[in-house]
Nucleic acid binder design. Structure first.
Lengths: 109, 109
DNA sequence: CAAGTTCGTAAGCGCTTGCTTACGGTAAGC
DNA sequence: GCTTACCGTAAGCAAGCGCTTACGAACTTG
């Protein structure tokens, strides 16, 4: 849950999601990610910084280039939050529906 | 995927997530949701509007009050996006690791 | 009908955010 | 060593966002 906060904020930006989608095909350098996106390379750098602080990507040095890759850590936290929330909400919805059914049965005065 | 865009932006705000968590326990009126949150009631109304447009909540009229409840529609879209992204990314990571292993085996010149 | 609830919306105001341009720093190639 | 490639960061700016107060609409109650 520690990463969940920043992870949701990070995935809120469409450009950042496109960066992640490009990265999901495999590790890439910053310039490769930027080419094809409608923003400048420094903008991509800033996005990558946000994604890294959210635990969604990791970076490694390769000569003059810097390679970024998907980091499963942050994604896992998000999925955990969503799954738990999903379960609780569905349980409450089911209980609510059943309660309404009982009200209809016993409320036929 | 149509809701995914707005859903991620909606869940980016912490207050909005707290509203959803309160709603996950069962349907509530606007005033009930606002009491207990550190923001005013109109602010909660605006948040609920965003959540509704994202397909995350549904509303129904009950006299002078308006009852909001979780809408599984938007949540499902988000989970689908995350799960697909998760699978593709993990597949690419696995392929990457295997490729590195092959490089080590055959590159021992 | 008048008064009191409950709620959505408009207007306005800081604050944050995403972008660009400009610059500095490090690694590779001649 | 000097140039070129690749990248992060600072500065600055326009736009979006979240919040509050103020107001009006719809409903209930006396």
């Amino acid at each position: 849950m520690a990463y969940g906060n920043a992870a949701f904020a990070a995935l809120a930006d469409p450009t950042r999601r496109r960066v992640l989608e490009r990265l999901s095909a495999g590790p890439r350098a910053v310039g490769e990610i930027a080419s094809g996106l409608p923003v400048s390379r420094p903008a991509v750098s800033q996005h990558l910084k946000v994604l890294k602080e959210a635990g969604l990507v990791s970076d490694r040095q390769d000569g003059a280039r810097r390679i970024y890759a998907i980091d499963p850590k942050g994604l896992g936290a998000m999925r955990a939050w969503l799954d738990q929330f999903w379960d609780v909400a569905l349980e409450a919805l089911k209980a609510e529906i059943e309660r309404d059914l009982h009200d209809h049965e016993e409320g036929q005065s």
